[in-house]
């Protein structure tokens, strides 16, 4: 077991970079922007998380995955704090995360409220199928050129 105070917060952030989002494994929980704070003290490590959607079932899995990832590095005293305010926004997605989403076939969020282009063929000729998708954070869209449906990460 590693004593918490001997490791740096930067080190913990680096380890968290390796924890994938349970629903969209191409981005990490850090890229997703839900990890708001890491505090290392004598009491252990406190990780502050801001939930994406209030009912998102992935949130409890994220805490579990973070706990397991840090336990694997020898950190056993991990505590979680939930921070509601300011509310999570897709502005907190990292640039790396946005690029990974598009590579994976999910159009990243845009302030205009819809995808900029089809993540498969880059056509801008796209239409909304439904405001809701396979997870709380996504909507269903379709490309009118390549005819492929795709997920759009909603902008909130």
């Amino acid at each position: 077991m590693v004593e918490a105070q001997t490791i740096s917060e930067a080190q913990v952030w680096e380890w968290l970079e390796d924890v994938p989002d349970p629903e969209i494994p191409v981005i990490s929980v850090v890229d997703l922007g839900v990890i708001r704070d890491v505090d290392v003290s004598d009491e252990g490590v406190i990780v502050t998380i801001t939930p994406t959607y209030s009912g998102c079932p992935a949130m409890s899995i994220i805490s579990l995955d973070v706990e397991l990832a840090l336990a694997k590095r020898g950190l056993e005293k991990v505590h979680f704090k939930t921070r509601l305010s300011p509310a999570w926004t897709t502005d907190w997605l990292s640039e790396k995360g946005r690029a990974s989403l598009e590579d994976y076939g999910i159009a990243p969020p845009q302030p205009a409220g819809g995808p900029e282009r089809c993540p498969h063929c880059q056509s801008k000729n796209v239409e909304k199928v439904s405001q809701f998708g396979s997870t709380a954070c996504k909507a269903q869209w379709r490309c009118r050129d390549c005819l492929e449906p795709f997920d759009y990460f909603k902008c909130i």
Partner: peptide
């Protein structure tokens, strides 16, 4: 999805 949001709230 809407139900899930509401239960979360």
């Amino acid at each position: 999805n809407t139900a899930l949001d509401l239960i979360g709230q």
